[in-house]
Nucleic acid binder design. Structure first.
Length: 198
DNA sequence: CCAACGATTCGCT
DNA sequence: GCGAATCGTTGGC
């Protein structure tokens, strides 16, 4: 049963220049994410690398992806399909982890006000709306000021499922989508990842 | 310069 | 299950 390559208790988040983005993506499963006091537990992530045709960084730096080439531990927020604000955690240069699903914990009333119907934080677009993300959040650090990323003390090493990333037309062979097998929000996602543990 | 296409979601058939 | 919404980036001419 493969598990994380780093010691979750040693230091979190692992924003050192050595941590490959796949390890960061796995490390963030089970972490607690807050955006201006609203958030929850990360349940689903995707990794995007530099030599990765599915990544925004693949063709080099530009106005949109500049944050991906900046320091680790900052938020890369971009506009998806002209309407959704999606949140990433920047790792090594040109690498980032897309936060796809959160188990809502804090500020649920606020999230529900922003999203009157349907799932609060299941899917990157819904999550961005529920957390009140905007393009002005692009480049902000996860330093506990507006954005924070912590590992709950009681959190153990979750069982992590993996599978192909969603919504991409290239790079499907990389099984870089990760999900917490225990997360309640992921019934359909878990079904699609059933039996895969890597 | 212009047409096509997304790291998506929602509503209707 | 399918198509619209919506806009910045991309790629072809």
């Amino acid at each position: 049963m493969p598990q994380d390559k780093f010691d979750r208790a040693a230091g979190f988040p692992p924003f050192d220049p050595e941590t490959p983005v796949v390890d960061l993506a796995r490390a963030l499963i089970g972490a607690h994410l807050l955006v201006r006091g609203v958030g929850g537990t990360i349940a689903e992530t995707e990794a995007y690398a530099l030599d990765d045709p599915a990544s925004h960084s693949f063709r080099g730096p530009n106005r949109r992806n500049a944050t991906m080439f900046g320091p680790a531990g900052h938020a890369y927020v971009y506009l998806s399909y002209g309407r959704h604000h999606c949140l990433n955690v920047v790792g090594r240069p040109g690498e980032a982890v897309l936060i796809r699903t959160l188990v809502p914990k804090v500020g649920i009333e606020i999230m529900r006000a922003r999203r009157p119907k349907g799932p609060l934080c299941a899917g990157p677009g819904r999550l961005g709306l529920a957390l009140g993300l905007a393009l002005t959040d692009d480049g902000k650090p996860f330093d506990g000021t507006e954005l924070s990323l912590t590992l709950p003390p009681q959190a153990g090493s979750p069982t992590i499922l993996c599978g192909p990333r969603i919504g991409i037309s290239v790079g499907q062979e990389r099984l870089w989508r990760f999900a917490d097998a225990e997360a309640p929000e992921l019934s359909t996602a878990i079904a699609r990842l059933a039996g895969r543990n890597c």
